[in-house]
């Protein structure tokens, strides 16, 4: 028996919006510690890892570990039927072939339930080791989204370089080239507006902008984003989900032929 009640149901709606274009089908894993997902895009270039910790739910009952295969397009269709202020409860029976999403309006005067068929998904789980990254950049998520969007109008790839001077995003294409440099700044008024760079070693990596732009659909989940980079390793683009968990995107770099 599984019963997870999330008072801020809009978070789940936003999570689905953030990942449904990157991944079509995914297994949601439910355990004592939380509700999680790890899935790769079809070309095995990008990976999304979601964690919603059990203590972030108002009610969390998971009698045994359960993996539920869901089509994210269909799940998103159902969650779109929930109001932004609704409380969402996810229910499933052990060994059942469906999951139920229950939506309650804040005043409790409207209750809906949507049952969705589960599917068997043969997904490949990757073992991602804990890594000490050479450089970690924390910046406003809207700023990162703006840079990725702007640069993708010029080129297909971006070189992200972190040095003691700041973080530089560079691209080039048929019409020309562009560089955006964000320097470390400390905002007294609002920590969310800060750009903070922790660097042990300078790093420069090349990534496909198409994927980074897809990750920025998670911008609504968090005011800040963290980019963790090491030489010759995938970048980790992390959005914290208030008080409850995180969504992390891993993107393999491009290398020169």
């Amino acid at each position: 028996m599984l019963e997870l009640r999330l008072v801020q149901g809009s978070l789940l709606k936003k999570v689905l919006d953030a990942i449904k274009d990157l991944v079509t089908d995914a297994n949601f894993d439910c355990s004592e510690s939380g509700f999680s997902l790890q899935a790769m895009d079809s070309s095995h270039v990008a990976l999304v890892a979601l964690l919603l910790r059990s203590d972030g739910f108002e009610h969390y009952r998971c009698d045994r570990n359960l993996s539920m295969g869901m089509n994210l397009t269909n799940m998103s269709k159902m969650l779109k039927c929930a109001g932004n202020d609704d409380i969402i409860t996810i229910k499933a029976d052990d060994g059942g072939d469906s999951v139920t999403f229950m939506f309650e309006s804040p005043s409790q005067d409207k209750v809906s339930d949507f049952e969705m068929k589960l599917m068997d998904i043969d997904s490949e789980h990757l073992g991602i080791p804990e890594t000490e990254y050479h450089a970690i950049v924390k910046m406003p998520s809207a700023e990162f989204a703006r840079i990725c969007r702007d640069l993708s109008t010029i080129g297909d790839t971006v070189v992200i370089s972190v040095s003691k001077d700041g973080v530089k995003f560079s691209t080039s294409g048929d019409i020309g080239s562009a560089n955006v440099v964000c320097r470390q700044n400390n905002s007294v008024d609002n920590k969310d507006n800060e750009t903070v760079i922790e660097m042990n070693e300078p790093v420069s990596l090349t990534f496909a902008l198409r994927y980074l732009n897809s990750f920025t659909k998670a911008t609504t989940l968090s005011n800040t984003v963290t980019l963790s980079m090491s030489k010759e390793l995938p970048v980790v683009v992390e959005y914290k989900i208030a008080e409850i968990g995180h969504i992390r995107f891993y993107l393999a770099p491009k290398i020169e032929d």
Partner: peptide, 14 residues
């Protein structure tokens, strides 16, 4: 030209 790497080049299947 640059070549796109796969995640399998970095992480083990587990």
């Amino acid at each position: 030209m640059s070549q796109q790497q796969s995640l399998f080049s970095f992480y083990s299947r587990g």
